[in-house]
Design a protein around this nucleic acid. Structure first.
Length: 312
DNA sequence: GCGACAG
DNA sequence: ATCTTGTCGC
């Protein structure tokens, strides 16, 4: 799915003499929370003439940015009959366009997430021994996924990278649609599959219970653990007798743990085929620094591959 | 100024 | 995530 294409098609629907907002476009894409991405995406509108992004403004009537400056945006809108005073649109509600023809692609992606969620198993199937750390790095339109497999005594067993063009933007809670295709490929090219994957992102610690680690786990039918550097959702509760560890609750259920390794905590959640407890203990076993070694080394491999060529 | 949804 | 110099700290 080409979300950028979908967005530009929506913008092309706005008739002269009308405007819409970043939030309205996000809603038409299927999720009002994607409004920040809408703004960023319109900033690089490839066809400012045919795609009338000058008709996209803030909900409060302020105009927002424009490639050729605010004067040009004002002039274009006035020529189309929009009244602007003091840099703001007068009577927004009279000119606001909301009647978009759309199949709400982000809503469809949420449905995909719900289906994957039904397949999640949060119990230990096998003992975790070797662990593959996974990360993806980006530059311009290029992405590099890396996997580094470590033994239980932290020896490197295998490294692998895979490059591709970036196919989906970063929108919070939809990270898996950006990163899982390339991760799937790099894992499939490993000579020997590790007993579990550690993924840079969340597992069930996610508003819909299916973060990147869970998504990848179901696709590959492998045990996965999510490790994030910032909290996506939920709240922390300290655990008696366990300083440096907190339970993370979301909608009443424990969905992961915060763990203070070095400095700021990391946020751990099971992805698939792993229990809550095993997710925590496995991360602890593989931690020398703040970030567990498999993920840290995968991150370094992905970044250096992006910068100094190699990979493929 | 407040709220602030991973990478 | 990425853009980026020197600086602070273990």
């Amino acid at each position: 799915m080409d979300l950028q294409r979908c967005l530009l098609d929506l913008v092309a629907q706005i008739p002269p003499g009308r405007v819409t907002t970043y939030g309205t476009l996000a809603k038409a894409l299927g999720d009002p929370r994607a409004s920040r991405w809408v703004g960023r995406a319109l900033a690089n509108n490839p066809q400012p003439v045919r795609i009338p992004c000058h008709r996209v403004v803030h909900a409060n009537g302020e105009l927002g940015g424009y490639r050729w400056g605010p004067e040009r945006k004002i002039a274009l809108l006035r020529r189309e009959g929009i009244t602007i005073e003091g840099g703001k649109i007068v009577e927004m509600k009279d000119v606001l366009w909301e009647d978009f023809q759309t199949d709400r692609p982000l809503l469809q992606l949420r449905a995909t997430q719900q289906r994957l969620r039904e397949r999640l198993v949060l119990q230990d199937q096998t003992e975790v021994d070797t662990v593959g750390g996974v990360d993806v790095a980006y530059s311009d339109g290029e992405a590099v996924a890396a996997c580094v497999v470590l033994s239980s005594d932290l020896e490197v067993l295998e490294r692998r990278t895979k490059k591709s063009a970036v196919a989906f933007p970063y929108i919070s809670t939809y990270l898996s649609f950006r990163e899982s295709p390339l991760i799937e490929k790099v894992i499939s090219e490993l000579e020997e599959k590790p007993t579990a994957l550690m993924v840079d992102g969340n597992g069930v610690l996610h508003p819909r219970g299916v973060g990147l680690a869970s998504h990848v786990g179901v696709l590959l039918d492998m045990p996965t653990i999510g490790v994030a550097k910032r909290l996506l959702c939920g709240s922390l509760t300290s655990i008696a007798g366990e300083p440096g560890t907190w339970e993370i609750r979301y909608e009443g259920a424990v969905v992961g743990y915060a763990l203070q390794t070095t400095g700021k905590p990391i946020y751990i959640s099971p992805g698939h085929l792993v229990s809550l407890h095993a997710a925590l203990s496995t991360v602890k076993r593989f931690c020398k620094r703040r970030i567990p070694e498999p993920i840290l080394q995968a991150h370094q491999l992905a970044t250096s591959t992006l910068r100094y060529g190699k990979g493929g």
